[in-house]
């Protein structure tokens, strides 16, 4: 038996610090990975199509959106052919909305664990990033294939824009997910409103349309949506260009960071009562 006599835990009515306890998170890092691993494993075990689903879903959406918004509605797509244009938007949007919806339901879905075992609760919503990263990776390969099909060679800046986009998406969706998961524990009607809310959000994100169709003042406003700057920049680099719209990307980045801080703060200040409420 390992005797770790220095480990002293003091439990009091009010936590001594409200925000993150990094040593504790480090201590539970394996649990974070295990939850992510479980989600991935279960997801690919349960769906008949398995990993092909991660290809099939964005591909189908791409075709449908191309037919309706590209061909019929003739929404402009700048330098890119519409399928490539919409797919670029979709893979980032799917990443964002995937984390958001799974994180928001994570506490309720894992109610049994929350009620019986202690661990830093933020692990549950944040570990949903894992499964979504895998999906994103698969879709990204698809995106490269589609762009080669249309004879587009991405600008080398893609190596910078994609990771940055992922980072912004993770923080934004993670923060919003933390906030909504906590809401979801307390207010049981949130669960029903959420899918609708996420569905509507796709229209506030330049997935099917370019930011260029908006007045510039409105463009800055919509850049508060973290995915706006990301998708905008990704489209530029995938078309081979390098003139990224930095102010928009900066606004989106700042907004995602702010969302994360607000979400985390709210989550941490409510987390101690989750077990009593869930």
């Amino acid at each position: 038996m390992k005797v770790d006599s220095h480990k002293v835990t003091v439990i009091r009515p009010k936590p001594r610090w409200l925000l993150l306890d990094f040593t504790e998170i480090w201590e539970f890092r394996e649990l974070f990975i295990v939850f992510a691993w479980r989600d991935i494993k279960v997801r690919y075990k349960q769906t008949i199509l398995g990993a092909t689903w991660a290809v099939f879903q964005p591909l189908t959406s791409m075709f449908i959106f191309t037919i309706f918004f590209g061909n019929f509605a003739k929404i402009p797509s700048g330098d890119l052919p519409y399928p490539l244009f919409v797919l670029t938007g979709l893979i980032f949007w799917n990443y964002f909305s995937g984390i958001l919806s799974r994180a928001s339901n994570s506490l309720i879905e894992n109610e049994g664990i929350v009620k019986k075992v202690y661990f830093p609760r933020e692990i549950l919503p944040l570990s949903t990033v894992g499964a979504n990263l895998i999906d994103f990776g698969i879709s990204l390969v698809l995106l490269f294939l589609v762009s080669f099909y249309f004879n587009f060679v991405p600008n080398p800046r893609v190596l910078f824009v994609v990771p940055l986009g992922l980072l912004i998406g993770t923080f934004g969706a993670g923060g919003l997910g933390l906030l909504l998961s906590s809401f979801n524990v307390k207010y049981r009607d949130v669960r029903y409103a959420l899918p609708f809310f996420i569905q509507m959000m796709i229209f506030l994100t330049p997935v099917i349309y370019p930011t260029s169709i908006m007045r510039s003042s409105f463009r800055y406003l919509i850049a508060l949506n973290p995915m706006t700057g990301v998708i905008d920049a990704a489209r530029i680099v995938f078309s081979g260009g390098s003139n990224i719209n930095w102010p928009i990307l900066a606004i989106s980045g700042g907004s995602s960071l702010l969302l994360f801080i607000v979400g985390l703060y709210y989550f941490k200040s409510t987390e101690r009562f989750f077990a009593d409420l869930v």
Binding site: K7, V8, I11, P13, K115, Y118
Partner: peptide, 23 residues
Amino acid sequence: LSRITPPTKGKITLRGRVGSLLE
């Protein structure tokens, strides 16, 4: 003691690693 729910008053000191088996 398992830190699943907080106390309203009082203080607990645990001098060692805690494993809890509520289920």
